[in-house]
Simulated assay, not measured.
Amino acid sequence: MNFLLVALGGFIGSIARYQISLFTTRRLIGTWIANITGSMLLAVLWHFYITQFISEFWWLLFGVGFCGAYTTFSTFGNETMKLLQNKEYKLAICYVFASLLISFITVASIFYIL
Rank of each mutant, 00 (worst) to 15 (best):
N2H: 09
L4Y: 01
A7N: 12
A7D: 06
L8Y: 00
G9L: 00
S14C: 11
S14V: 11
S14R: 06
I15C: 08
I15W: 08
A16C: 08
Y18P: 05
Q19K: 11
Q19W: 13
S21T: 04
S21R: 04
S21P: 07
L22M: 13
L22G: 11
L22H: 09
F23E: 04
F23H: 12
T24P: 05
T25N: 08
T25C: 03
R27Y: 12
L28D: 09
L28V: 11
T31P: 02
T31Q: 01
T31D: 06
T31W: 01
W32K: 07
I33D: 09
A34D: 10
L42M: 08
A43G: 04
V44K: 05
W46R: 13
Y49G: 01
F57V: 09
W58Y: 14
W58P: 04
L60V: 06
L60C: 08
L61H: 00
L61N: 00
L61Y: 00
G63L: 00
V64R: 00
F66W: 04
F66H: 03
F66P: 01
C67Q: 02
A69T: 06
Y70K: 03
Y70R: 02
F76I: 07
G77E: 07
E79Y: 00
T80N: 06
T80C: 08
T80V: 08
L84Y: 02
L84M: 09
Q85H: 11
E88S: 08
Y89C: 09
Y89W: 11
K90F: 14
C94T: 15
Y95Q: 10
L101V: 13
I102T: 15
S103G: 12
I105D: 15
V107M: 12
I110A: 00
Y112T: 11
I113Q: 08
I113H: 03
L114M: 07
L114D: 01
